[in-house]
Simulated assay, not measured.
Amino acid sequence: MLGDFFRKYFVNPIKYNTGYNPVNTLTYAVILGLATILVYKVLKRLRIKIDNAFFRALIPYMIFGAFTRALTDAGVFPRTYITVSPGIYFLVFSIAFPALLISHRFFKDWRGVFLSFGWGLVLVDVAALSANIGKVSFRLEVLKYFIPFVIIAELVIYLLSRRVYLIRKNSYLFYVHFYDATTTFVGVDFMGYWEQHVVPRLLIGLTGTAAVMYVLKFSILFIALWIMEKLEKEGEDKELLDFIRMVIFILGFAPGTRNLLRMLMGV
């Protein structure tokens, strides 16, 4: 019985690419929350400062995860449980976290080493794409939709940031999640893709357009950041809240980049 339950809600959605369901969505959310707290505690114990330099060092790993996921869709890499979502997050973590620990333990300029290793992983993906270029049918027409809509979306955030302090303070998070929302909007409304996540899929079905993603993302992000702002004023660990903001950034940047790369590669 337990095996059938696990197969139905966790294995089959990945195996048959049927998207997320309420059960696995909630489970993955709990795992993400627990993992965030656990990783933060480890970083604190190791006295690894969570600052802008640390954040920048994570960028290539985000790109690597998104790129690898898109290359899997393009048939360059085999489709397995660790090369598609959510397994790709575990794959990237299983590479990035040991690389971070080793860099921090053995190198004085550990951020530089960690950053260089991340860009090396991206180059591996570039090499894999170059070696399999014949498998990819590029669709640059995606850009004629993406570029104008992402400019408009980011302009909205810029204008709102001039009036609303909470948005101005966290503008990079709103920018990146509107970037992600734009890739979904363009993919679903113009390129024939479909949304895999439960709530967005429901709202798109009800409204008839993936433009609803802008409203959904803005609402959830604003409420979450408002709560975090209140917690910070009440004395909650600021570094922990900054780490959570970093995770929120990853959850916008990684899928958005994967969506864009996937559309550009015509898969």
Rank of each mutant, 00 (worst) to 15 (best):
Ala210Val: 01
Met1Lys: 13
Val84Tyr: 00
Leu115Trp: 15
Leu221Asn: 03
Tyr61Ala: 01
Ile227Cys: 11
Val92Phe: 00
Tyr193Met: 11
Ile147Leu: 14
Ile82Cys: 05
Leu173Gln: 10
Val247Arg: 10
Ile220Lys: 06
Gly87Leu: 00
Tyr179Arg: 05
Val215Tyr: 05
Met191Gly: 01
Phe146Asp: 10
Arg262Leu: 08
Leu91Pro: 02
Val176Asp: 10
Phe97Pro: 13
His197Ala: 10
Pro98Cys: 10
Phe64Asp: 04
Arg139Met: 07
Tyr214Met: 01
Met265Pro: 03
Leu231Tyr: 08
Arg139Asn: 14
Leu71Ser: 09
Ala74Thr: 10
Leu26Cys: 10
Lys238His: 13
Ala153Trp: 00
Arg56Gly: 12
Ile63Gln: 04
Leu34Ala: 15
Ile157Cys: 11
Leu121Trp: 03
Phe218Arg: 00
Ala66Gln: 02
Lys144Tyr: 13
Pro22Trp: 01
Leu32Asp: 06
Gly118His: 02
Trp194Cys: 03
Ala211His: 08
Met265Thr: 02
Leu240Cys: 08
Tyr16Leu: 14
Val126Ile: 13
Leu225Lys: 00
His104Met: 08
Val188Tyr: 14
Tyr9Thr: 04
Ile14Val: 13
Leu231Met: 15
Phe243Ala: 08
His197Tyr: 07
Val113His: 02
Ile88Pro: 00
Ala99Gly: 07
Arg56Met: 15
Phe138Gly: 06
Ala127Ile: 06
Phe114Val: 08
Tyr61Cys: 01
Ile37Arg: 12
Ser116Gly: 13
Asp180Glu: 13
Glu232Asp: 14
Trp110Asn: 10
Ile244Gln: 02
Val23Ser: 03
Ile14Pro: 07
Thr18Asn: 01
Ala127Val: 05
Leu140Pro: 07
Trp226Leu: 07
Tyr175Thr: 06
Ile82Asp: 02
Val198Phe: 15
Arg139Trp: 02
Leu251His: 07
Leu264Pro: 07
Arg45Ala: 10
Ala224Gln: 06
Leu140Gly: 12
Glu154Ile: 11
Lys49Gly: 05
Arg139Glu: 11
Phe138His: 08
Leu173Lys: 05
Ala96Trp: 01
Ala131Trp: 07
Gly134Thr: 11
Thr80Asn: 06
Tyr20Glu: 13
Thr207His: 10
Leu203Met: 13
Ile223Arg: 04
Tyr28Ser: 07
Tyr28Trp: 15
Val247Leu: 12
Lys233Trp: 04
Phe67Cys: 02
Ile88Gln: 00
Arg56Lys: 14
Arg139Val: 08
Val30Trp: 03
Asp180Val: 03
Phe149Gly: 08
